[in-house]
Design a protein around this nucleic acid. Structure first.
Length: 764
DNA sequence: TACAGTCGGGG
DNA sequence: GTGTACGACTGTA
């Protein structure tokens, strides 16, 4: 039988090797089976390989053992190996573990690979591929072929049936009463206080709609674990899985450090034959949602349920492994080559990393923002930077890295550039398409999410190059990339200056140019021609403010700025509104003030209106008209409770929750209100809310004024620290407490003009 | 004032 | 599955 359709999912089947789900063109969802033997390799001295053969013949008779050669990418050549082929993926650990224990001195390759990646490399199929399968009467796949590729720009959408499940409130905050279930056009509200009826109804819905995707809010961390227990308790057979043979996969919650910050990942519940995604436990869901997840699955070949939950780092690592498998390069089981311990993992490490300049503090008009497009990935591709192409000694035909004693072999394409090239090309193609589409069209939205998912993959690949435990990482390659980056930025600066522009700020992959020559295309082309890397115009700022450091007011903070483009769009970086610990009301106030300034060609002309808006906001705060949710500060718990030395607000809020029986894990976010007296905070997830009168309004006022000062002080030409006093004196002629909304229009007239007040040290 | 603790950055 | 930068800022002691 010949079937065509979409590849829905592939996972291990203990008996047959693989379970393969096909979403057929006829609308049927079929669980097929496929035999799938897998091979891994051992390499080392001849005598040891002989011993391996003897060992396996005795200990693992089911394994087929063969002598051959494979490419060791770090050695740069084919090496003799023992190939060990086992009948099913599930057989690998049983054969490998004793082998590795007996021969710890050998190198191993292709051992610990995700099944989906092995399958993709072997079959040419990928998640969501259009495909044709030849299947026997017993549902065994005899042959399969892909009918499209992940790089296709236009593909028919996969006809997914989606069911969404959502509790009426966040279960961490309060006890939900309803579960809202949406299947297609229908919406059902299931009462949670009648568990048996709820289960029976949910079962009926699942059977009737048979969804491909359960999109559950808090599905990982609350709903599914709870439903599974409840169904068990009430003896209801709840068909969460579509695969009757499959088990529901549970992964425990965990926390870890990544790029210097603590990350908490909640428990995961993975279904068989159906996808389950919890948008609150899905990486970057708010950025690219389902379409981005599907794009990731196609290009990384990770299963959809995995793509939704992993960090882009895992994604890029999968693409590298896939590339290696397809090229016949061994994927090291453990990292082979020695390297210095290092710390500079991050894209923006200033020391021997990206180039950072001290901008000129204050307000600047008519500034162009120029950015290299995907700078670091473009460098890796353009200069062929890969762990195996970098060497610390000159080799014939190798190119020296600027400023460093490193050489790059450009005679053969490196593994990492080969993995990146299609991603980079696709992102460029998607962006080109976006440029021609109206922003409100569905096609624009779709492609934007795809481009965004690719962006994160590309951003992370640089970090992976320098990451100690990456399989295809090497610190020297990482250093080479940043060296080329610095060179490219300096090259761009030269070109700009030759054209008569003044560079007022440079930051890793971007530069800000005052009174940039208007002939952009030729300027950008020249930078491309001289640096080899594409540059784009981020936009032309009507004005942009670079902020001084709060700790050292004479020094500029490279990373705190805001500005307004010619079309009125606002861009902010590093200031309160960008920080996830800022209360929504405070962010909103800061942005509201900034948007008022943005409406004026000269931001100072917006000051009277900005003062008025600020007074109104403070008035709302005073009169208790701000929703409690909008006053929530949110911070991550950075360590275990016992490890806190200072009674910081977070520590106090966590302690409150603990006393109320709610335990938080490191990396989880704690939301709290600021209250009067001791302990000064009120954790949001406590069973009750604080009385309105106990909110520390004065403290909130301080925070509002501080955030407003960040954007207003540079426009007034004063230091941020002077702002609250300045505001009370100049912009608020009446006593604070006497504010009423009726008094406001008159008050606005009494405002002074700030123009010309700037001290000499602050260019305005 | 020193120290402890958390945040951004990429588009 | 793995994972702990750096500088800037805020708050505590």
């Amino acid at each position: 039988m010949l079937l065509t359709g979409w590849l829905f999912d592939v996972y291990e089947d203990p008996l047959d090797g693989l379970a393969v789900w096909l979403l057929g063109d006829d609308g049927r969802r079929r669980r097929l089976r496929q035999a799938f033997p897998v091979t891994f390799y051992a390499s080392g001295p001849e005598a040891r390989l002989k011993a391996v053969e003897g060992f396996l013949a005795k200990r693992s008779p089911a394994a087929q053992v063969e002598r051959t050669e494979r490419c060791d990418v770090f050695a740069g050549r084919d090496v003799p190996v023992v190939a060990v082929k086992v009948p099913r993926p599930a057989d690998v650990p049983g054969v490998f573990r004793p082998l590795e224990r007996a021969f710890p001195d050998l190198s191993y390759g292709d051992v610990d690979l995700q099944l989906s990646i092995r399958y993709a490399a072997a079959s040419g199929l990928f998640p969501l591929a259009r495909c044709r399968m030849e299947v026997d009467a017993g549902g065994r796949v005899l042959a399969a072929e892909a009918l499209d590729s992940p790089w296709d720009m236009d593909r028919p959408p996969m006809p997914l049936r989606i069911c969404s499940l959502e509790p009426d409130v966040d279960p961490a905050h309060a006890d939900p009463r309803w579960l809202v279930v949406r299947c297609g056009e229908q919406e059902h509200r299931l009462a949670l206080n009648a568990p048996r009826a709820m289960l029976v109804n949910l079962r009926a819905l699942l059977l009737r709609h048979d969804p491909d995707l359960l999109l559950a809010a808090r599905g990982d961390t609350w709903l599914l674990p709870w439903l599974i227990d409840l169904a068990d308790q009430w003896g209801v057979d709840l068909p969460l899985n579509r695969d009757h043979h499959g088990k529901i996969g549970r992964r425990k919650e965990r926390w870890y450090f990544s790029y210097g910050q603590l990350v908490y990942r909640g428990e995961q519940v993975l279904l068989a034959g159906r996808w389950h995604i919890d948008r609150h436990n899905a990486m970057l869901w708010d950025d690219y949602d389902l379409e981005g997840v599907l794009e990731l699955a196609r290009v990384t070949c990770l299963p959809v349920q995995t793509s939704a939950r992993v960090s882009p780092g895992t994604g890029i690592s999968s693409v590298q492994m896939l590339t290696a498998l397809r090229l016949g390069v061994l994927v090291p089981w453990q990292k082979q080559q020695a390297e210095e311990p290092h710390s500079a993992l991050d894209l923006f490490a200033a020391d021997q990393g990206g180039l950072v300049y001290q901008p000129k503090i204050g307000l600047h008009r008519n500034v162009s923002g120029l950015d290299f497009v995907s700078m670091y990935p473009a460098i890796m591709v353009n200069y062929n930077i890969s762990p195996e192409t970098v060497s610390a000694t000159p080799r014939p035909g190798a190119e020296r890295v600027p400023e460093l004693n490193l050489w790059i072999d450009r005679s053969r394409p490196g593994l990492v550039p080969q993995a990146l090239l299609p991603l980079l090309n696709r992102r460029v193609a998607l962006k080109e398409r976006l440029a021609g589409l109206p922003h409100d069209s569905p096609e624009y939205q779709l492609n934007k999410k795809r481009a965004s998912a690719l962006k994160w993959l590309l951003v992370t690949c640089f970090g992976y190059l320098g990451y100690r435990n990456a399989r295809f990482g090497r610190i020297e390659a990482h250093q080479a990339v940043t060296a080329y980056g610095r060179e490219a930025l300096l090259c761009a600066k030269e070109v700009v200056e030759e054209h008569g522009g003044e560079v007022i700020q440079m930051y890793v992959d971007g530069l800000w140019v005052k009174d940039c020559p208007a002939d952009y295309p030729s300027l950008l082309d020249e930078i491309l021609a001289r640096s080899g890397l594409p540059v784009g115009l981020d936009g032309v700022y009507r004005w942009v403010a670079f902020l001084p450091s709060r700790v050292h007011p004479r020094r500029a903070a490279a990373n705190r700025y805001f500005g307004v483009f010619q079309d009125g769009e606002v861009k902010v970086r590093g200031i309160e509104a960008r920080r996830r610990d800022t209360a929504p009301f405070i962010s909103a106030t800061q942005l509201a003030v900034l948007k008022i300034l943005a409406r004026h060609a000269d931001p100072q002309d917006g000051l009277p209106e900005a003062w008025q808006a600020l007074r109104q906001r403070l008035d709302l705060l005073r009169r208790g008209r701000v929703k409690l949710e909008d006053l929530l500060l949110a911070q991550k718990m950075g360590r275990d409770m016992e490890e806190y030395k200072a009674r910081s607000p977070v520590a106090r809020a966590v302690a409150q929750l603990q006393a109320a029986g709610k335990t938080l894990k490191p990396g989880q976010r704690v939301r709290y209100l600021l209250t009067l007296g001791h302990p000064g905070v009120w954790a949001w997830d406590l069973p009750s809310h604080p009385p309105l009168a106990s909110l520390d309004i004065a403290r909130y006022e301080e925070l509002v004024l501080r955030a407003a000062g960040t954007v207003l002080a540079p426009v007034c030409g004063i230091l941020e620290s002077q702002f609250p006093a300045y505001f009370r004196q100049h912009a608020s002629p009446h006593e604070f407490d006497r504010y009423t909304s009726q008094a406001l229009p008159g008050a606005a007239k009494a405002l002074p003009r700030a123009r010309g007040r700037a001290p000499a040290s602050l260019p305005v």
